[in-house]
Structure formats: structure tokens, C-alpha cells
Nucleic acid binder design. Structure first.
Lengths: 331, 331
DNA sequence: TAGTTTCACTAGAACGATCTAGACACCCAC
DNA sequence: GTGGGTGTCTAGATCGTTCTAGTGAAACTA
């Protein structure tokens, strides 16, 4: 069936329109140097033939590819929101996004190399797990922007959210509601977990409260497990490492017959889609992913277009109060 | 800072190793036609220079690109699981995956064109929303495999799960447990919703039961809304359109003080990561996404490598019983 | 010994675009 | 009428590969 007909090339369009390849190229790129009348003629011929420029050839030849490489983790739903926002911002700035997923059996280096191989002018990496030395090695070839992580050395740009400020806001919020017994279920080995843990310690001290920290992780299961270890000595509020963990915590608490927020307040982190679900109504610290993504794209474009020095942009997160945090039970 | 040093090319390696470009190309591709000794010498030189082939040039020149284009919806977490599995299968078969997301403000056609522009030899589309005419238009250029949807015309391959069988299994399961009052919360306008709705009708009839259907949709919110409209006349079991909808249903029921599965059994569809969460323990109809993904990749590769006729593979889903379905309350 | 085959290697075209340099026509000013 | 500018268009090189055709030497066959 399906006859695999050859894709039309510049040459085909040129022949059809009776001009040279170079002129067709000029017209297709919208570059100056073509009379309006021929421009129309060429465009018409191109449309007629269903011509689309071959990006391999285009990228190969042109000095500027206007391609931004974006690596993300396929297993992390939160990253999808960022991908979405990055597309929008890149398009607005006249750049394309080349996607590469870090998946099971496909390490980060592999994802990056493939982005480089297709001619990305800059790399945006969401929560990179590579060491800063490795990141710097790539940064010598092309500008690299680390998204959601900032301890990446001096050669690498970073766009991140102020974890310390986020935790401060979290602790202030809960302490402000009157909570005295607040626990942090940490992120284990996840990116940012260390910073948040440390911040929690100092912020609790600032309030003159004891900083109790329970080992956790980034998934629902981690939250669930943590809820069990909290059962014996229930705090009045919990600051989760992220929303997914918070979900696990809440489910665990509910299974024990506890009411949220009556018996325990739970505060998430990320303000992801999960938090926004109308039946969850999870209070959360928002990093504003779309804004961070847009900033990272801007950063990458700036570097590509001449900015010499890598910048480290830190945005302050903000609190989104929904229905899982409230003043403690006044027993 | 970061001196943007030029990437080494075949020419550089050739010079360093004292051979021709063509020979380096042969060695890098692992093609036959080079003596073992020179092979080592070239490899060493390449390693030394940190050479990596430029995929733009490679793809441009070679007749075979060994690239499979994969389009997915960034907003649909379920698709991420498929992306993951597709990578694995493609790698195993010696192919690369080119990813393109359908995102907010980035329509499916745009995602596809970009995959074509980079030289994909075949297209795998997850739950395509284009009309079969549009799909066929692309299928004339390159083999197209539709994943999770099968009403795509004769020119397009499809790998899908037997929706009718899935619903039959669902209804059999619940009827077998003794349920008589079973409701289907449908998928609204989502892909496959029509098939499942129709199947539910015929299968319920086969059991001599009344097929009650409530309008729904693919998200948690849709399930939640549906739970409210079920409140007045509570069935003993619900077949949700998918897991996300099931989650919404369950949360809605719980908010009304109902116990799952004591008061209502809820059956999901997809057996996604949500279903597997230890606190959800959602009974669900599994389409086995990794298997479907692997099949789609195989299909695409077969077509690329010579299979003339598009095939329509239909896999039978299976039941995964967890803790949200049980015999009805014996009032 | 002459002819054939095999092996290791190379020169140069090709892929489909962009880019550089220059040609040609036209208009204007002096 | 000549020189210079401007606007439109083209030829040919080029990007970094792969591919085709072929060279030359060694090894085998008759």
C-alpha cells in the first residue's frame, strides 16, 4: 500500500517556481532579499508540493540551530508540567525544544549526549543528578542551565527555588497557626532534600521549637511509610518533602482514622496537580513551575545570545493555603 | 568563561589516526572493512579527542536513520509509563527514539511534523486524536502506528487493547461477586470512551442487568463529579473509565462517609501507578502498558524493515484484583 | 605465470539545507 | 555618460557524515 514517496526538497520547490534553491531558502526563512511577487510565487509552489524544510540539513548547515535541549525524568509527573511551560516559552522566543527523557535503563548522560548530537545550542536539565564536575564538563561545550537545583558549580547556570525560604514560609505558617509539635518528613536522597532538612532545623530553632525529622522520600509510598512511624507519637503538623509524599501521609493518617486537618495538619511542597485536586485541597509551598521553566528558557537563550557569565537565579516560593492545614486541636 | 570549543569531527579523528574519513566512519559504525589493528588505532584517537558522531549529519546522509518518532501527551501521566517502555524496546532493537510532546498550545500535528522533520522512519502515536483521514495522510509518507486506539483506517497500524473484552472482564468480575446494580462512569469524549460505553451496555444485557451509565471523563475531577450524582441512588459497584476517574470516585464516596469496598465496589481501568499505590490498592483492568509499548515498537520496526501491510494488533487486557472490589453488602 | 578473489583502504559524490560572494538590472546624482 | 548605490537573484562552497566506486597489494586458483 502506502507508496513511500520522496519528500520534496528545496530543489523541487525551486524547479516548480522557476527560481534558484538559494532564493527558496531565503523565502522559507523569511529572510530579506526577495521581491514580494516572487516570494508569493515560491510560497505557493511550496504549499502546492507540501514542502517542509528538512531539519537535519537545516541544523547541520546553519551556525544557529535555535534548538534548546531539555532533559526530564519520565517517571516524575512534576517534570511534565515544566516541559509544557518550557515549550511555550521557547516558542515565544523563537526557539525549538529537543526533548530527551531519562528513563529506566537510560541514564542522564545518554539523554544529554543525544541532545548535544542533534545540535542543541544549550541544555536545560530538570533536577540533574550528575555531579557538578560532570555538569561543568558539558558546560564547556554549551551553556547548561540546571533547573530546580543550584549546587552546580560556577560554570553552570541555575534557576531554582529558594528551599530555605520555602521551608521558612512553611514553618512560619504552621507555627503561626499555633502548632508547636511539627515534624518534617524529609526527601531522603532526592535533590534538594538536604537543603530542606537543614532549613527545617534552623527555622524550627528560630521559633524555639524542637526540629523533629523523619526519613522519607519523594513518592507516595515514602509518605505512607512515614505516617506509620509517626503513629506512636503524633505531631500536630507535618511538613512533607513534596506533594506526593504528603498524599501518602494523608492516606496513611486517614487509614488510622485521623482527620485532616483536625487531628494533623499536612503541608505539601511543589503545588503540583495533585495538590490542586478538589478532593485533596492540599496546602502546599508553590515553586511556580511554569515561571521557573520560563526563567530557565530565558536564561538559556540569554547565554546563547551572548551573556558571558552564568547566572544563578533564585526565586522565592510562596504559600498556597488550602484545606489540609489549620490551627491545632485545642485539647 | 566556558570557551565554546568546536566539536571534533570525523576529519579530526582521521587526521589524528592518519587514515581517511571513510575509514573512521567504517570503524565508528562498526561496519566490516577495517583491520583490527587500525580499528583499535582509530578508536583510540576518537576516545582521545572525545569524538561523538554528529547525528544531524549522520541522519541526513544515511538512507536509514533508525529513528522512531514517538508523540505523547505531556499532561497524561499514563503516557510516561509508555515512553519509558518504548525506549527500552527500541534500544533493544537497535533503534533510537525521537520524542515530541503534545502540550498546551502545541497541537498534535506540530509534534508530528517535527518528528518527521528530523527523519523519523516511523511514527508511534499514543492515543492520537487526529481523524483517520489525517492519520492516513501521514501514513502515506511513513509507517504510522497508533497506540491505544484502533479506529484509524486501513493504512495505519494499530496496537490496542480489546476494550470490549476489558469491559466484559470487568462486568463478569463484578457480576460474579454477586453485584446486580452496576454503574459505568464513562470517559466522555476521551479516546476509547465510546467503545467501552457500548461494551458495557451489551455485557450488562448479557447478564440480564440494567446498564446504567453516568457521564464522566478521564480525570480525577470527573470521577469526583460523578460520585456526587450517584449519591442519590447508590449502586453496589462502579466501573470507572480509568484509574484517575476511579480515584476521584473513591475520594468522593469516602467524603460521603462510604466505605470501599464495603458500601461500593470500585473498579478502575489502566492499572496505572496510581492503582498500585499501596494505600489505594485499586482493583483495575490492566492493559499492560509496557507490553503494548513494546508491541508498538516491534510493529513500527517490522513495517520499516519491510512488512507491507499494516497490522492491527489487539491485546486482551486482564483483571488485577486488589482491595476496592468485593461482594456486595448482604443487607 | 596469469587470472581471479579477497582484503584494507581511499577519493569524491551525495544528503538538503545555508551562506558567501558576486552578477545583473535599474535608478539616481553629478 | 559615468560611477555608485540598491534591490533581486544565482552559482558554488560548505556543514559532517555515509555511500559508491575503485585502487593496490596480497593470497589463492588453475
Amino acid at each position: 500500500m502506502a507508496e513511500q514517496q520522496r519528500r520534496p526538497t528545496l530543489m523541487d520547490v525551486a524547479r516548480a517556481a522557476g527560481v534558484s534553491r538559494a532564493l527558496v531558502s531565503i523565502v522559507m526563512r523569511g529572510a530579506p532579499g526577495a521581491a514580494e511577487s516572487t516570494r508569493q510565487k515560491v510560497l505557493e509552489a511550496a504549499r502546492e508540493l507540501g514542502y517542509r524544510p528538512d531539519s537535519r540539513a537545516r541544523l547541520l548547515r546553519s551556525s544557529r540551530t535555535r534548538l534548546l535541549g531539555l532533559s526530564f525524568f519520565s517517571a516524575h509527573p512534576f517534570h511534565a508540567e515544566i516541559v509544557d511551560a518550557a515549550y511555550a516559552e521557547a516558542t515565544a522566543r523563537g526557539y525549538e525544544i529537543a526533548l530527551s527523557a531519562v528513563a529506566h535503563g537510560r541514564p542522564e548522560t545518554r539523554a544529554i549526549e543525544s541532545l548535544l548530537d542533534v545540535g542543541s545550542e544549550a541544555l536545560i536539565m530538570i533536577s540533574p543528578t550528575l555531579s557538578s564536575q560532570e555538569l561543568e564538563r558539558y558546560a564547556r561545550q554549551v551553556p547548561v542551565v540546571s533547573l530546580l537545583r543550584n549546587d552546580v558549580g560556577d560554570l553552570v547556570d541555575s534557576v531554582s527555588s529558594d528551599d530555605h525560604a520555602g521551608i521558612r514560609i512553611a514553618v512560619d505558617h504552621l507555627a503561626g497557626l499555633g502548632h508547636r509539635s511539627i515534624v518534617h518528613v524529609d526527601g531522603g536522597t532526592a535533590v534538594s532534600a538536604d537543603q530542606r532538612r537543614a532549613a527545617f532545623r534552623t527555622e524550627m530553632e528560630r521559633h524555639g521549637l524542637e526540629a523533629k525529622i523523619i526519613p522519607g522520600g519523594p513518592t507516595e509510598e515514602d509518605g505512607l511509610t512515614a505516617s506509620r512511624s509517626l503513629r506512636a507519637d503524633l505531631p500536630s503538623a507535618v511538613v512533607a518533602f513534596n506533594d506526593r509524599s504528603a498524599l501518602g501521609l494523608i492516606e496513611g493518617f486517614r487509614a488510622d482514622g485521623l482527620k485532616i486537618p483536625d487531628d494533623v495538619s499536612v503541608l505539601g511542597y511543589d503545588d503540583s496537580q495533585f495538590a490542586r485536586l478538589s478532593y485533596m485541597q492540599l496546602s502546599s509551598i508553590s515553586q511556580d513551575a511554569p515561571l521557573l521553566a520560563a526563567t530557565a528558557v530565558k536564561q538559556a537563550v540569554d547565554r546563547v545570545e551572548g551573556a558571558k557569565e552564568p547566572a544563578h537565579v533564585v526565586r522565592t516560593p510562596h504559600l498556597v493555603v488550602r484545606k489540609t492545614t489549620a490551627p491545632p486541636r485545642t485539647t
